[in-house]
């Protein structure tokens, strides 16, 4: 992937974004974060007329408006919440199952496979961009590979996945929403999952080995924004 072949986008965010200049994360506001990963992500999908974007975080008006106003079609699935709901259901199943009737505890990878039988059900190669945010940090490490494999199958060749990884256990649980073309807002939220794993660079590269190109940015807050191009 030639990252410099295409002219870069200028500041083309939501209304009011034009006046905002990129700078250190602290210069925007305490909850906002300049995101070079998002900027690059948008640049990568900018050639696609009426492209499809899959947001795996909760649905926010600002994120939807941002992409819809640019002509994208947006799908939304709060995967972390779905995972939590799934685990709760599984626990309930275990609790109520009679002896010898499937009451055994499943391994994390088997759990992930079972979860994916109902979650992230989209056509293969149907998305040009996937926003995974930092959710992978919150899944059991053994459940992450099948999940990333599924995400990989959803992405159109040339499409991109934006994922965030914490370099140390996250102090607080946040959800993310797009503010403009180069910044995201971190919304403090009630913890629905505990930070499960700090991925090392080698692990991350291994997870996304089906992608042909990667690029990462490390912020001052020690969050790595990683962009993978299929």
């Amino acid at each position: 992937m030639n990252w410099t072949a295409k002219p870069r986008l200028s500041s083309t965010g939501a209304p009011g974004a034009a006046a905002r200049k990129p700078g250190p994360a602290t210069s925007v506001s305490p909850s906002a974060r300049v995101s070079n990963g998002l900027k690059e992500f948008l640049w990568l999908i900018s050639d696609v007329p009426r492209g499809r974007v899959l947001d795996l975080g909760p649905i926010w008006q600002s994120t939807v408006s941002f992409f819809v106003e640019k002509g994208y079609r947006v799908s939304s699935e709060d995967l972390l919440r779905a995972w939590k709901d799934f685990l709760t259901t599984e626990e309930e199943r275990l609790r109520t199952a009679a002896v010898g009737e499937g009451g055994e505890r499943l391994s994390p990878s088997r759990l992930a496979e079972k979860f994916l039988e109902t979650a992230v059900q989209y056509r293969e190669e149907s998305y040009h961009g996937v926003l995974a945010w930092d959710m992978l940090d919150y899944f059991d490490p053994a459940a992450v590979p099948p999940l990333v494999k599924r995400l990989s199958s959803l992405v159109h060749p040339g499409g991109a996945v934006l994922a965030l990884f914490h370099s140390r256990p996250a102090e607080r649980f946040h959800r993310y929403r797009v503010v403009d073309a180069q910044s995201v807002e971190l919304i403090p939220a009630p913890t629905i999952a505990v930070h499960a794993h700090v991925f090392q660079n080698r692990e991350i590269l291994g997870l996304f080995d089906e992608f042909r190109s990667s690029k990462s940015f490390v912020g001052r807050d020690q969050v790595r924004e990683a962009l993978y191009v299929k």
Binding site: I59, R73, V74, S75, S76, E77, D78, R81, A82
Partner: peptide, 8 residues
């Protein structure tokens, strides 16, 4: 709000 699906 919780939405699982496509917005167009």
């Amino acid at each position: 709000a919780r939405l699982r699906g496509k917005i167009e």
